Amino acid sequence: MTHFGIGVSTAVADVAATLKLAERADRAGLDLLTVSDHPYYADRLDAYAEIGVLLGRTRRISGLVSVTNLPTRPAPMLARTVSSLSELTGGRIVLGMGVGGLWDDIARLGFTKLTPGQAVRAFEEGIRLVKLLGGGGDPVTFDGEFHQVTNLEPAAAPMPPVWTGSVGPKSLAVTGRVADGWMPGHAADWLSERYRTSRPIIDKAAVDAGRDPADIATVYNFPGRITAEPLPKTRADDGRWIGGSPAQWIEELTGAVLEHGAAGFVLFGPGGSTPDETAAARWAEEIVPAVREAVAK
């Protein structure tokens, strides 16, 4: 399955527009709504409060916090949050997980500032523990460096797929060992140097762990303009996608799926902004159906 989503605002000031966009995306048949997780900013909504309300206002679309700020959300409680959302929505949730990047801001919330090495180890432990705490089974005791639980019963709901936003080599290897999907950082796409140098690290780690690299999907955050008329160039001199007409988007994304194995795309506006109403409509009503049709052939 190829996933098509849209990134929505977490700004408190945008609540009315965000609810409207989510409901429109659901009616149009998109697969994912994504929100970011920056709890240290007072003008931003809490990511899981927002995704819960958005899922409550929709019927078919899934939610993804892209990506969960794991240092601020202890893994056992995150597992309970996600399994609860799964039960409440009929499984319409994907779990995005991140190492944590803005450590000065994380520390302002009262959480311990970790070294890069510690953060990656905590990240892998967190993913492993969260996965143990879904799908029923025997009580879990986990005595890790950063996470400990004792005789804790897993939730009955299966744990949803875990997608990461790994960037550095060590966290990329974690993705290969334990995750189900990867969203390349900095909106890197399938033609970028970041992808070319990062995906092999994931694949090698997967093989070393006895996994099939093909089981780890690559889903792209993909910002750009959707214009009424074709653009002379769809990519900048540095190779970054600029955008273009619906036909240009359709050609680009179809090629990404068929030639590069892309498993999905989340639309953002230029610079990572929330798409406006016109762009969202062209994405959901013109581009996505045409790419789905072309890929199905």
Rank of each mutant, 00 (worst) to 15 (best):
G29S: 05
A281R: 13
P184F: 08
V174I: 00
P116N: 07
D43K: 06
A75N: 04
D208R: 11
E286G: 05
S245A: 15
T150P: 00
W182G: 11
T218D: 03
P39Y: 02
I250R: 04
V8I: 04
D212C: 05
S36R: 15
A16Y: 12
I226K: 06
A256K: 01
R59G: 09
P213E: 07
T197Y: 09
I93W: 09
E251K: 13
T18K: 07
R57Y: 03
V120I: 02
D14S: 10
W163S: 00
M1S: 14
L133R: 14
M1D: 07
G5A: 01
T197Q: 15
V266N: 06
R235M: 05
L172D: 01
G244Q: 07
I127S: 12
R92D: 04
G101N: 10
P230T: 12
R121T: 11
K113Q: 12
A256Y: 01
P158S: 10
L109W: 01
V130C: 15
M1R: 04
G100R: 05
G269V: 09
H3R: 11
I127A: 15
A13E: 12
S84Y: 04
G63P: 00
I106F: 10
V167A: 10
A236M: 03
A156E: 15
R24T: 13
L258C: 07
A47L: 04
D212W: 00
G135Q: 11
R225Q: 13
R108H: 14
D276E: 13
G269P: 00
G144K: 06
S273G: 13
A16L: 14
T58W: 13
R196M: 08
V162W: 06
G135W: 06
G244L: 12
S66G: 04
I287H: 08
G243H: 08
M77I: 09
M77G: 00
R292W: 01
A236K: 11
G239Y: 03
G7N: 09
G63N: 00
L267I: 11
D212S: 04
A284I: 10
L55N: 08
R121P: 01
S84E: 02
R108Y: 13
L132W: 00
N221Q: 11
R57V: 11
H38K: 11
R211V: 10
D138W: 07
P39H: 00
H38V: 07
R60D: 15
P246A: 03
D105M: 14
G135S: 11
W103C: 12
R211C: 14
